[in-house]
Computed example of a mutant assay.
Amino acid sequence: MASGFAAWLRSPAAREYFFSTHFWGPVANWGLPLAALSDLVNKDEEFISGTMTTALAAYSMVFMRFAWQVQPRNYLLFACHATNATAQTLNDIRFVRYWYMGGRDAKLKEQSKNGLTEAGAKIEEAGAQVKGKVVEAVEAARKSASK
């Protein structure tokens, strides 16, 4: 199998394929699914555009059908658009959950809870520092009064 593939790579048919739009179109198009996957992992739901994400998912679904119908079938283009449609749909689900199903409220509640916890910790730390300073001042006053 590997030797057959290696022989095909050296053939004129391989050169014809690798220098065609049937190959380079999908390769160039892989930027869309890679960006969608990056958004899926790194982007906060607050910054996802529901309109654009839905449009890109629909676009990829249309071109998945095109990649399947064109002769010869373009499996690379199909895989590219299947990946993009899946990632954009997942981003759309994240968007809907955040803005319409209480995700934003839960996140804000969690942030305020964390903020209060952090503020309480800072207040306790400041109180401990003040207490330490007061104790030092009282001890200094006792020493100066005993002299």
Rank of each mutant, 00 (worst) to 15 (best):
G132K: 07
A79P: 00
T53I: 03
V70F: 05
T21C: 05
D44G: 10
S20G: 05
L34Q: 01
M64A: 14
H81A: 01
F18W: 11
K147A: 14
K107Y: 09
I93T: 06
P72F: 04
T21L: 09
A2P: 02
G132M: 04
S144M: 11
Y59L: 12
A141H: 13
A119Y: 12
M52Q: 13
D105K: 14
K147F: 13
F5N: 06
G115H: 08
A126C: 09
A106W: 07
M61H: 08
I123T: 12
A128P: 00
L56E: 03
M1I: 09
R94P: 01
F78N: 01
L90E: 01
S146C: 09
T54C: 09
P26C: 02
S146D: 12
D44T: 07
N114Y: 08
S11K: 06
A85P: 00
E46T: 05
W68M: 12
E124T: 13
G132C: 03
A128N: 10
V130L: 13
W68P: 00
T86W: 04
R97E: 08
A137M: 14
Q88N: 13
T53K: 02
R15Q: 12
W24T: 08
Y100H: 14
D92M: 13
S146Y: 08
K122G: 04
Q71V: 09
A36W: 01
F78D: 01
H22Q: 10
K109S: 11
G50V: 02
E110L: 15
E124P: 00
P12Y: 03
E139Y: 02
K113L: 15
A141L: 12
S112G: 04
W8Q: 06
R104K: 15
A106Q: 14
M101V: 08
S112F: 11
T89H: 02
A13N: 12
R142L: 13
P12M: 06
S3K: 12
T51S: 10
L37H: 03
K133M: 12
N42R: 15
P72R: 04
G50L: 00
K107D: 11
T86H: 03
V138D: 02
P33K: 00
L40F: 11
L37E: 01
E110C: 11
P12T: 05
N42I: 05
L56M: 13
A106G: 07
C80V: 10
R94T: 02
W30T: 13
T89V: 04
S60L: 05
S49Y: 09
E45C: 09
I48A: 02
A87I: 00
G115W: 08
N74P: 01
I93Q: 06
A6T: 10
V96G: 02
G127R: 15
A14P: 01
S20E: 05
I123M: 11
S112M: 14
A145Q: 12
T86L: 09
P12K: 08
G103V: 01
F47I: 07
W30H: 08
Q129V: 10
A128G: 04
C80P: 00
F18D: 05
M52G: 10
G25P: 00
N91S: 07
P72N: 04
I93E: 05
F78V: 03
W68K: 09
R104T: 04
Q69V: 11
A140K: 14
W24Y: 08
K107G: 02
S3G: 03
T51E: 08
L32T: 04
R142Q: 14
R97D: 06
A87K: 00
A128Q: 12
M1D: 09
G120H: 15
A82G: 06
V135Q: 07
R15N: 08
